[in-house]
Design a protein around this nucleic acid. Structure first.
Length: 215
DNA sequence: CACCAGGAATGTA
DNA sequence: TACATTCATGGT
């Protein structure tokens, strides 16, 4: 059992989940900010309102009054902060000529650009680089840590960050996208009710996985 | 009624 | 470095 086998077992069950659920890269970025510590259901309400008003774009947000933006993203919670974050982010991107020019930037340049932005932390950065810019990024968030804890590869309060490099070297961009999508799916479907069930679900030995997945 | 959700900034020690 | 607090809505 190695990390590729793990992915294959998950893929056999879940298949292509087509993440991130968004029409455009700009929508990915907006959603990534809005979903910070917030259920995706609440984000969907906000995205719908933005779309209704034709304001689900970085350009529209940069031109919009902040109070108006707060109103539209209210359902996602933390709207004072998130409106400010989205305004600053949109302004910065628009100043660089929009999202298009950024596609030719190097990974490190995108990383530097977004990670120094107010309100963009590690998890949000991972999602933006992987799902909006299609870069080789493994998303390490709470679901990721919960998942690897449950299959016995992480001790309590230990972070999955240490396996980032190996995973990013082992998978394609598409696989990294779907890997995280499947991890989130498992988290939503099983983990809360039955903490031990991820290993059972994948039909693997948790102890065996711990010893052999990342030698 | 309490608790949590696809976090991050800020303050304290 | 390691925690605690704050931000805020909507679902269960």
């Amino acid at each position: 059992m190695d990390i590729s086998s793990l992915y294959e077992q998950l893929f056999q069950k879940y298949g292509d989940l087509k993440w991130w659920p968004a029409d455009t890269s700009e929508e990915v970025i907006i959603g990534a900010v809005l979903t910070q510590n917030t259920s995706w259901k609440n984000v969907e309400i906000s995205i719908s309102k933005l779309k209704e008003n034709g304001s689900c774009s970085l350009y529209a947000i940069s031109k919009m009054e902040e109070e108006k933006l707060k109103e539209q993203i209210r359902s996602s919670g933390f709207f004072n902060r998130k409106a400010q974050v989205l305004k600053k982010l949109s302004d910065s991107v628009i100043q660089n000529g929009g999202l298009e020019p950024l596609n030719s930037w190097k990974d490190e340049e995108l990383d530097h650009f977004f990670s120094h932005m107010f309100g963009i932390g590690k998890e949000t950065l991972d999602s933006i680089l992987l799902y909006a810019f299609h870069r080789r990024r493994f998303v390490v968030d709470k679901y990721t840590n919960n998942f690897f804890s449950r299959i016995g590869m992480l001790k309590k309060n230990e972070n999955a960050e240490f396996m980032r490099e190996k995973i990013e070297d082992s998978f394609s961009v598409y696989q990294l996208k779907n890997f995280h999508a499947m991890i989130v799916n498992i988290g939503k479907d099983h983990c809360k009710a039955k903490p031990q069930c991820a290993g059972c679900f994948m039909n693997i030995s948790c102890d065996h996985a711990k010893e052999t997945m990342f030698p």
